[in-house]
């Protein structure tokens, strides 16, 4: 069969990739530039490169504090999701009266974007008395409907006979989940951890609303604050950007397959 040559396709894809990578390059270049970042014309390679800007970040802003807040909120969100979604996912594999309604309720909740509820969500959080706290930031992110269904699908794939055998051996329900089902659902766990990491690590609007004091700010809020205080006058801002992006990118590159599977299964299977 006659085949078209592949080089035009490679050429297009190389051009696309180049365009996609330019923003990364430009910000890294700026963060390494030692001199005035406003110098005209901007050079393609960093002038007199050094890591001064990265050191500067530590002096200009409470970076460790932002990092601590982000890490704690992310850990809370991930552990909450693992615990609650596992439990809910397992409950949904069972037959019980009203199950259809619960599933329908969850599916319709999924169509309510969180952004459409911020005003009352703020009032509720303030009523609960957890404004300006780690719990307040993490609370709406403690359980995710998509991830419940990912766990449900994964648990349903485990052979019934295995669960029955465990039950005959006298294992309690919670132990069946922890000892039998979870070890067989590693991909679902990975998907859960990765998706929730990305969502809570990157969350901006909700923390912006809930957090009042500077020492409760997470990394995205710190970035926005840095920008509003310093404008983009210093290379340190871009060093900060690079430092904030590295964890997310690392996780993505390490677990690309689980990440993409999670997004697509979450998006298509509901």
């Amino acid at each position: 069969m006659r085949r078209a040559p592949t080089w035009p396709r490679h050429a297009i894809m190389l051009a696309v990739c180049l365009l996609m990578l330019v923003p990364f390059y430009w910000v890294i270049k700026t963060s390494l530039t030692g001199e005035n970042i406003y110098a005209w014309p901007p050079s393609i390679i960093p002038v007199n490169p050094h890591l001064f800007n990265y050191v500067d970040v530590w002096y200009l802003i409470p970076f460790p504090r932002y990092l601590l807040n982000s890490v704690i909120v992310t850990i809370m969100a991930i552990s909450g999701n693992l615990l609650f979604n596992t439990a809910a996912g397992y409950a949904l594999t069972k037959q019980f009266p009203g199950k259809r309604w619960i599933v329908l309720l969850l599916l319709s909740c999924m169509l309510i974007p969180f952004q459409a509820t911020i005003i009352p969500a703020y009032l509720i959080t303030s009523w609960l008395g957890v404004l300006n706290s780690w719990l307040g930031i993490a609370l709406p992110m403690l359980s995710t409907i998509i991830c419940i269904f990912i766990f449900k699908a994964s648990f349903e794939a485990v052979p019934r006979s295995l669960i029955d055998a465990a039950r005959v051996d006298g294992l309690s329900e919670w132990r069946i989940v922890v000892r039998i089902l979870l070890p067989l659902s590693k991909p679902a766990i990975a998907t859960n951890v990765i998706l929730n990491f990305i969502w809570s690590w990157n969350a901006f609007l909700w923390p912006l609303i809930v957090v009042r004091s500077p020492d409760m700010q997470t990394l995205p809020l710190g970035l926005a604050r840095f920008l509003s205080v310093m404008e983009d006058t210093t290379g340190a801002l871009f060093a900060f950007v690079v430092m904030v992006l590295v964890p997310g990118l690392t996780i993505f590159l390490m677990a690309q397959k689980e990440f993409i599977r999670g997004l697509t299964s979450g998006a298509t299977k509901g």
Binding site: L83, F84, N85, A87, A88, Y90, A91, L92, I102, L105, L106, C109, I112, F114, A116, T117, I118, I119, P120, A121, L123, I124, L139, P140, L142, S143, I145, I148
Partner: peptide, 22 residues
Amino acid sequence: GCFLLPSLAVFFLYRILPLGWN
């Protein structure tokens, strides 16, 4: 019920209740 409760509580507090209240 126990297994579903925490998740449902989160969704009630941050999806259903806000939508109605809003």
